[in-house]
Design a protein around this nucleic acid. Structure first.
Lengths: 183, 183
DNA sequence: ACACACATGTAATTGGTTACATGATTTC
DNA sequence: GAAATCATGTAACCAATTACATGTGTGT
């Protein structure tokens, strides 16, 4: 049985930061790749068990004696190899599903104010996301610029920033276009 | 039981173009919203049955006597209302999962050539998509520019084009950055 | 004492893809 | 008459979310 995508995020996160618990892995995901990836506990914990059973990760006793009760995991050599093998495979993109664009596409069925509202929501979400990513950028520069993976983190980050900025520009022109029509 | 997203695409597609069969609906989706939405027959046919049972659509006899055996559907008043109600609700975005970015994020675990390959794939896919959308744009202008929904189609299309162009620009700078490092 | 964050897990359900199965009609 | 496309559907499976359930340690 081949690992799921969830398995690979876990392997990847353990490769750049060993000795993480399920809880910790989720937090790491949340504050690093959250703008293009997310995981729920309902996926993480069962996957950790399966990976351990397959020998791709091992539970290791916590290094800090006073720590809470938790299971910390690290990659095995097999796990590292498995991750690298997956990384070398061509990526697959799942079919897209964007409810925002779908509602906008059918915008002719409802008053223009509805679509204008959706676009304003969209713009607001992107503004917030932009702020988050900019924060992440300064944080990353301060703490991790020596890490060997640093340039790749910057690459994904700059992609996110480019997409968001393009989305914000589009939002403005779209709002201008719809407002001109409805007034 | 509330309709799924699939149900709403079907209602929407029937609202802009009545008397479509399941097969036809899928084709319509493929050549209009495919860059941000997709559906499989495995979803469409069961959903059509359910929508008909709920009275949101009706099967109508084919207008063309010589036509093949097929079930064509149209919106009922209830279906139209249901669609409009949904359109007026705030959109929800599902948690993102981008395998390309994930592999790039872990790029430090493998030789740079691997990530360069992924980015080249990504650029190639975006180039093809750009060509498709440009084709779609000219087609749409020629055939449908009188349709009341036209401006909304253009809005989603221009969004797609903006995102793709931004992705292509990023690809070039990313490749430049990685090539400089690896040579 | 209370609230909050830490921490782990299971069960139910949803939403969806893919593969399978079948057959009609058109076009070459 | 063969191949392609039109056309409809089911079954198996999978990936993932959400809600539920439970308990501990820390800070105020």
């Amino acid at each position: 049985m081949q690992p799921s995508q969830t398995a690979y995020v876990i392997l990847g996160m353990l490769s750049i930061h060993p000795n993480q618990s399920g809880y910790h892995i989720r937090k790491t995901i949340e504050c690093t790749v959250n703008y293009f990836w997310s995981e729920s506990y309902g996926q993480i914990y069962p996957t950790l068990k399966r990976l351990a059973a397959q020998g791709l990760i091992v539970a290791c006793p916590s290094a800090f004696p006073g720590a809470r009760q938790r299971r910390e995991y690290s990659l095995t050599a097999a796990g590292q190899a498995c991750l690298q093998e997956w990384l070398a495979q061509p990526y697959r993109d799942h079919p897209p599903r964007d409810e925002f664009l779908l509602k906008l596409f059918f915008g002719g069925e409802v008053p223009p104010s509805v679509s204008i509202g959706h676009i304003r929501d969209f713009r607001e979400k992107n503004r917030r996301l932009l702020a988050t990513l900019l924060e992440l950028e300064t944080l990353a520069h301060g703490h991790n610029s020596q890490h060997p993976q640093f340039q790749f983190w910057m690459l994904t980050l700059s992609f996110g920033l480019a997409q968001i900025r393009s989305a914000l520009e589009w939002s403005e022109s779209a709002l201008a276009m719809l407002s001109a029509r409805s007034d």
